[in-house]
Computed example of a mutant assay.
Amino acid sequence: MPTYSYRCTQCENAFDIQQALSDESLTECHECHGKLRKVFNMVGVTFNGSGFYRTDSRSDSRKESGSSSSAPTPSS
């Protein structure tokens, strides 16, 4: 289940809670009964592996036609 962060707009009370995706968002602070807002944080991204290369996502036919050494030369 995902964890959501909430902060009260009146008393600045902040907390995290686990909720199912189908659950309704919380709207009322349990301390002062003020209005709650969801807090959205930046998500960290980690790239693991030896690296990413320009040709990683290309199909085989595109790799072959993209090389300049095997291309025919124009004749005059």
Rank of each mutant, 00 (worst) to 15 (best):
M1A: 14
M1E: 03
P2L: 06
T3R: 13
Y4V: 00
S5L: 05
S5R: 09
Y6V: 01
R7H: 06
R7L: 02
R7T: 04
C8E: 00
C8P: 10
T9C: 07
Q10N: 15
Q10V: 07
N13P: 00
A14L: 09
A14D: 00
A14C: 09
F15W: 06
D16K: 14
I17S: 01
I17T: 02
I17Y: 03
Q18C: 04
Q18H: 10
Q19C: 07
Q19T: 07
Q19S: 04
A20W: 11
S22I: 09
D23V: 03
E24G: 05
S25E: 06
E28C: 14
E28W: 14
E28P: 00
C29F: 10
E31Q: 13
C32H: 07
C32S: 04
C32K: 05
R37P: 00
R37F: 03
R37Q: 11
R37W: 01
R37I: 03
K38V: 03
K38Y: 01
V39H: 05
V39W: 04
F40V: 06
F40N: 02
F40K: 06
N41A: 13
N41H: 15
M42R: 13
M42F: 15
V43A: 10
G44C: 04
G44T: 04
F47V: 10
F47P: 00
F47C: 01
N48E: 12
N48M: 12
N48Y: 13
G49H: 11
G49Y: 12
S50F: 14
S50M: 08
F52R: 06
Y53G: 09
Y53W: 05
D56C: 08
R58T: 00
R58D: 01
R58G: 01
S59L: 09
S59R: 11
D60K: 05
K63A: 06
E64R: 15
S65H: 12
G66H: 04
G66M: 11
S67F: 13
S68L: 14
S69N: 05
S70P: 01
S70V: 06
A71E: 12
A71Y: 11
P72N: 05
P72Y: 08
T73C: 03
P74T: 02
P74M: 02
P74Y: 11
P74F: 12
S75P: 07
S75C: 04
S76L: 10
S76N: 08
